[in-house]
Design a protein around this nucleic acid. Sequence first.
DNA 1: ATCCTACATTGGACATTGTCTAAGTCAAGA
DNA 2: TCTTGACTTAGACAATGTCCAATGTAGGAT
Lengths: 140, 140
Amino acid sequence: MSDLLERLRGRGWRLTAQRRVVAEVLDGDHVHYTADEVHALATERLPEISRATVYNTLGELVSLGEVLEVSTDGRAKRYDPNAHHDHQHLVCSRCGTIRDVHLQGDPLSALPEPERYGFEVSEVTVTYRGLCPTCSGHHA
Amino acid sequence: MSDLLERLRGRGWRLTAQRRVVAEVLDGDHVHYTADEVHALATERLPEISRATVYNTLGELVSLGEVLEVSTDGRAKRYDPNAHHDHQHLVCSRCGTIRDVHLQGDPLSALPEPERYGFEVSEVTVTYRGLCPTCSGHHA
DNA sequence: ATCCTACATTGGACATTGTCTAAGTCAAGA
DNA sequence: TCTTGACTTAGACAATGTCCAATGTAGGAT
């Protein structure tokens, strides 16, 4: 996502210090921050940035398809910059850590036609849950 | 789930009017209410029931494994009484309708060992999204 | 049948997450 | 450099969920 800013500018995105900082915070393939975490990290680089702008910018990045919105639990949504490689998530039920994982086969094909009830199915998300190595050690 | 109350009593659940009403509201296989919806419906039968009790009772039913918690979007969680038949969900991206669906094969097997990163994977949820027949008609 | 008491319920304050708006600020083209 | 429409801001507001002290009650004990 190193040339994200270039791509966005090409699409007529007005480049501001705030937007640059949010994009920089999200840069990195294994990052799944909440909006508040993004805000906290952005604040380190640009102390005046407001919560509203972080929410706005994240929403725009999602609309532009540059970042994915992930809501694993009922808590805060997380933002996943790895939008250009198809993947799913593996979540630790104890500590909440998220890892990107890659599946064998297309999960869409696991849903038979008669189970589609006339829907135009266009998307599927698969979330695996379990204990991560660290957490499963705790209670052994 | 007709004998849910029996089962719960057998487990030492103290049966109160409030708990009975919440369980009755959830009775039905194709129901995916939010806590607020459950509260509204419960209030029709037992006007004094409080929000806190609805939340408490739903939480207990989930802990007891009698009801599933489903959070499809980042909005309110929904409660699914169909906890004894393995199934997944198909959600309309426009109106939010949820249908239970049954998959071919076990989605757990789609995650190769090297993609498990040492996790003890115990659960998988699959959510299909698309337009339901009614909503896909709208924009045709 | 009545009493006890541990457990359940209640209302309302509080917490978290997210949205909206009016007023001020600024990036970038002319 | 100037202008202008888009961006940012603070803070009010909304939606959802949690917590607590006071009160009520289901169900076993008597």
